[in-house]
Amino acid sequence: MKSNIFSALRLTLVTIVFFAGIYTALVYGFSFITPNGGKGETTVQDGKTYYTNIGQSFTQDIYFYSRPSAVGYNAAGSGGSNKGPNNPEYLATVQARIDSFLVHNPGVQKSEIPSDLVTTSGSGLDPNISVAAAKVQVKRIAKLRKLNESTLVQLIDEQTEKPFWGMFGPEKINVLKINLALDQVSKSIQ
């Protein structure tokens, strides 16, 4: 037993050096040759830097909305609502989101709203919306920005990220990227 404790202590120390020290150092060293230098992927526009993968809150009507978030898109934390699918309080919240969306988007039928626009994501930082969620917002944005609807539909087509290798997983739109592009389109027209 006694020899076990000494062996265990010493083995623990050397394995800490190896797996918490050397392993971490190797990965950290390698991070400098990766595209983002291990600091997270960023997008720069007009001198401002944004994290591409960390969703942002878009609630203004002139932008494509992002999904609701349980953490308000503040990436100091992360998490979902953790509401059960049949929780009455939760369903009332979703109903309120639907009502609000219909008020801001006159002419849109309830059945046209895809559920990702009225539900929170798992991380609260989802950077994406579905293609249907972008299309259902075209009318509102076109009117407010005085753009042709066809221009926006074309923008959505350009911004649609295909499944991985064209074969695996869902199609999606990065809300930050499409809104940055949207600002560019508006600017070029003025």
């Binding site: 699918p85 939760y90 979703v94 059945s111 046209e112 709203i113 559920s115 929170t120 579905s130």
Partner: peptide, 12 residues
């Protein structure tokens, strides 16, 4: 509630 669920259950 009347919304469409093309992506399935998206809460969380």
């Amino acid at each position: 509630l009347g919304v469409s669920q093309p992506g399935g259950n998206m809460e969380g």
